[in-house]
Nucleic acid binder design. Sequence first.
RNA 1: GGAGCAAAUCGGCUUAUCGCUUUUUAAAGAGGAAAGUCCGGGCAGCACAGAGCAUCACACUUCCUAACGGGAAGGACCUGAAUAAUCAGGUACAGAUAGUGCCACAGAAAAUAGACUUCCAGUAAUUUAUUAUUGGUAAAGGUGAAAAGGUGGGGUAAGAGCUCACCGCUUUUUUGGCGACAAAAAUGGCAAGGUAAACCUUGUGAGCUGAAAGACCAAGUAAAUCGAGAAUUGAGGGUGGCUCGCCUAAUCUCGAAGGGUGGGUCGUUAGAUCCUAAUUGCGAAAUUAGGGCAAGAUAAAUGAUAGGCAGUUGAUUUGUUCUUCAGAUCAAUGUACAGAAUCCGGCUUAUGAUUUGCUCUUUUU
Length: 120
Amino acid sequence: MDHSFPKELRLTHKRDIDILFSKGKRIKSHPFIVLYHQTEMPKSVPFKLLISVPKKNFKRAVDRNYLKRCIREIVRKNKESLSSNNKGTSLCVAILYSFRTILPFKELEHSLLEALKKIQ
RNA sequence: GGAGCAAAUCGGCUUAUCGCUUUUUAAAGAGGAAAGUCCGGGCAGCACAGAGCAUCACACUUCCUAACGGGAAGGACCUGAAUAAUCAGGUACAGAUAGUGCCACAGAAAAUAGACUUCCAGUAAUUUAUUAUUGGUAAAGGUGAAAAGGUGGGGUAAGAGCUCACCGCUUUUUUGGCGACAAAAAUGGCAAGGUAAACCUUGUGAGCUGAAAGACCAAGUAAAUCGAGAAUUGAGGGUGGCUCGCCUAAUCUCGAAGGGUGGGUCGUUAGAUCCUAAUUGCGAAAUUAGGGCAAGAUAAAUGAUAGGCAGUUGAUUUGUUCUUCAGAUCAAUGUACAGAAUCCGGCUUAUGAUUUGCUCUUUUU
């Protein structure tokens, strides 16, 4: 089982991010907002991910870093839920954390997996 | 026992599973503040004939430093410990006889002081202790943060540094100190409030912009760029903000060379470097010798989960005469503040634990 999470799986180009935010579909699932959009990419890249924790809700960098790490860890362990469903095209996904308090890891895992099911 | 202040040290260790970044493929991988971005410097680009004005910063002395608005040592003043000595804390600590402004309430008067009441003397009038008038004087006038040296004696019609003693102050000299300044002596009768964290004056210093600086490579071709030539226009552009001064332009043709672009590499471990020791110095620091090389991400790595240990807190129990202290068991917690973004030196702020010193408070003996 491959749990790695290299740099190619991250969404880093500004053009792609602009397209995702303007054309992507939006799902609200507490405490997350998920945006996704289908594009063509090489087969080695099943999906591209963007994680965002807004500065408005968390002033300190320590809290933002902790939430980003938790979300990245959950996605890394559950890669197949994003990659297995589509074969010709791949997904651009943005996960926004829109809640004012920090939730424990197990609650985050449970609710994020439900949100990812809604995409399918 | 508790609280506060100051100084010093530390800012956890480890196992399993799955991962991230860098590269030499085997290693390394957040802090004392990485924070605030408040000062100073390195570095880089642009500018740089010069002069004046404006602007900004700083303001006791000597020293340290690459530099500073930082630090060390010292001086003066203020506050507290009853006073002195001494100790602790604090000070935007140049100038209020260059000028302008402001000073509520109270008070007779608040800044060119002498108008008013009072005091004293003379003259006149009469209600014979009052009024009017002339002169003397600034002592008294309940206030106020502040009233034109203070206290006491003499002196006088009443008074006044008018005079004397002590204290304070001005000026001068001598001595000590590198200096801020201190001490002593003489001298002048004593020019006389606060506010410059009000404008301002004096002295000293400052070119501007910041790593999104900047250099190179790849891809690639427009308005902008550079060079040469031509004619015309007119005072445009640059020079830190203004003025002077200085330099230069715009249009067309030809030639050269390329722009955008979250593409990449460098800048971005080798330094005002870190550790240890010795020497010099009261100290901040400096010098010498030996050893070490220590994160470089870029929508932003340095982790997540599950345990264990150390530590902390509480309860029970054992040893010891109670407290204290030491051990065992159980439970809770697994820490606080907080995440590099060009790099250093400081300052400020946030904060957990331990140790030492001082102060306050409470309980017991």
